[in-house]
């Protein structure tokens, strides 16, 4: 094998190894990129995690059915329920919903809830003005808590949405 060929092979290998590393970094970079993309477009049903003061005009002509669903992450030993499963609201009206959660274990538990809205594309129109899910909750052994969520639907919500689902999932974050 001559020297010239060896040089060329080395160059090819170097370029390709760099490409391998670039692609690996690309995979890692997808994590923040994904979150940024979801945040900008609101396409993942993740509601913005911040309180907001909004001043919408209430649209009494329209009525939206708002459903509440609750679920638990794997191994989260809570009893968690919405106090009402369904309400009717006018866009622009601030509504307060209450939930009940109790710690079924005999140990102190910290837990955090994650909110989501479906259908996904409607998420940008649902504003959480206040939510217990903004903070981590601490449950003493056996404690039952009443928790509140305040939200408002942006009156510019496109006409074809008649029913939205607001979901909360509690995760045990003790460790």
């Amino acid at each position: 094998m001559n020297v010239d060929l060896e040089q060329r092979n080395k160059k090819t290998v170097r370029a390709l190894v760099i490409l391998v590393f670039v692609m690996f970094l690309f995979a890692v970079a997808l994590i923040p990129l994904y979150d940024i993309l979801c945040e900008i477009t609101g396409i993942n049903g993740k509601t913005k995690q911040e309180s907001a003061v909004l001043d919408y005009k209430i649209d009494t002509q329209r009525e939206i059915t708002l459903e509440f669903i609750t679920s638990l992450g794997a191994g989260t030993d809570l009893a968690f329920k919405a106090d009402k499963y369904e309400i009717k609201v006018h866009p622009g009206e601030v509504v307060t919903m209450s939930f009940t959660a109790s710690n079924k274990t005999d140990q102190r538990m910290t837990a955090k809830a994650n909110p989501s809205v479906t259908p996904g594309p409607s998420v940008g129109y649902v504003k959480n003005t206040e939510c217990f899910c903004f903070d981590t909750q601490v449950f003493e052994a056996g404690e039952t808590k009443h928790l509140e969520v305040q939200l408002v639907i942006n009156p510019t919500l496109p006409e074809h949405y008649k029913r939205l689902t607001f979901g909360l999932t509690f995760f045990d974050t003790t460790n």
Partner: peptide
Amino acid sequence: SFFNAAGGGDPVLYQHIFWF
């Protein structure tokens, strides 16, 4: 918690990376 919703991650993100 890359793919763990409890920690702010997202399992669907794994699907995007996997299928890429």
